[in-house]
Design a protein around this nucleic acid. Structure first.
Lengths: 238, 238
DNA sequence: CCAGTTTATTGGTATAGACCAGAAATCTAA
DNA sequence: TTAGATTTCTGGTCTATACCAATAAACTGG
């Protein structure tokens, strides 16, 4: 029986502090140097334990401000949920949306393919960041087929897009193709989410179509990995 | 403009070796000490770069044997796919299943709840490991409502369970409730998957029912995170 | 030729210390 | 009182080194 490595012991002791409520959800952990001293180890080893808990989704870091205890995960049902604001509110949490940019442009290849358009076709691009209980958890880029949404720039984008589709354009999106890939956040997304490079994340893409099969929306989302649990409930008859 | 940290530069250089085909999918990376020397840095910093690529799912490690380039991700469609063997084969990959144990037992609380049974009801428990192109990628525990599957112990478990359900018991599972949670692998799962603790993973649970609403199966799967992309294609009218 | 033992190699864990850069708190002068 | 400068605190990055444990390769005796 080989004994457990020190950093896993530290992980267990830290987790105990969280489970007992000594460090409640959302609270800040003591400084790394303090913890290292208290546990009689070095910062390097302590950080290994912290990284472990981060990977598990128990704690997260806010850029140079410290480590925090992760709150309960949000349940996301991609098949059913279409409004971030709505399903966040329904779970007793507080959503917030920040618009980073909106512009009309020409579809590049990847976007064109996803929207079933020729390269260079007119599309809108909307970039947003979303907060959960004031924590930045998601950055998304949405490309829209401009042909179906004339004058879209007149509307507000800090609320549900799908609501605008329905109320203004009488468009209902009933078909979705979704992919979910666990990965690490790098580059642009790191900057937008204000996290450290390599932070574990989820890459979710969504293509949405009308009942007639017209592709309206292509969405790319990058989530912090500890925020979500994905739930699906399906029936298949074949 | 602040310059990029060294470990991210190393990450980029390593990634270049992979992208150019100098290190093809499945191949082993040079030893850490060699790479550290070649890049004129220390093992500590080099390992930071390797950890980065591991989080992204570009490379993986095999216990004390070295680092390897991750092959392309497997596409898993939980709504449609029911046989690991089948969807792996369909994607031109080679599946393998290893049975770790099968026994009849009494349902503990979590299992009982999931199977809509009283605590202590008779259930079967099946533990399996699954390989993708000879790489161990998944460990699963399946609990089954014994009442619907008398004499199940007589059958082979290294193939599709659902096939047995259909052919022997005339049971077709059409309703599924699935949850997907990105996390890190620890404890039991680490041992079963022969990885290092804290290795990023996916926790997938599935509850399957017949058309009549009888809950037959409760499944808990732990996947290595770099193996999968999850795909969903849904239509909702309402 | 083979099975068992030894050795070398590899990643895994851990220490000790240094400096940097961003964020927050404090201080200071208008 | 407040806007701006300064200091302090925090995590982020990096070096250099050491030893451990599992694996794989080499060796050795039957």
């Amino acid at each position: 029986m080989s004994h457990s490595p020190l950093y896993l012991e530290l992980r267990t002791r830290l987790l105990a502090l969280i489970r007992t409520g000594e460090l409640p959800a959302g609270s800040r952990l003591p400084a790394e140097r303090l913890l290292a001293e208290r546990f009689e180890t070095t910062r390097v080893t302590l950080r290994q334990a912290l990284g472990q808990l981060e990977s598990e989704g128990c704690i997260y870091r806010s850029n140079r401000r410290g480590w925090f205890v992760s709150p309960a995960r949000l349940v996301y049902e991609p098949v059913r949920d279409y409004s971030f604001t709505r399903y966040v509110t329904a779970q007793g949490r507080v959503p917030r949306t920040e618009v980073l940019g909106f512009e009309e442009m020409q579809a590049e290849e990847r976007v064109a393919t996803s929207l079933s358009l020729p390269v260079g076709a007119p599309v809108y691009r909307l970039k947003r960041r979303r907060y959960l209980d004031n924590r930045l958890v998601l950055v998304e880029t949405i490309w829209l087929n401009a042909r179906f949404l004339p004058g879209l720039e007149k509307y507000r984008f800090d609320q549900s897009l799908w609501q605008v589709f329905g109320e203004v354009y009488d468009i209902e999106l009933v078909h979705k193709q979704i992919t979910i890939t666990p990965t690490a956040l790098i580059g642009e997304e790191v900057a937008a989410l204000e996290v450290t490079s390599g932070c574990p994340g989820l890459h979710i893409t969504r293509i949405s179509k009308t009942a007639a099969g017209e592709t309206i929306e292509y969405d790319e989302e990058y989530w912090l990995h500890d925020v979500l649990t994905i739930a699906l409930s399906t029936s298949s008859y074949g």
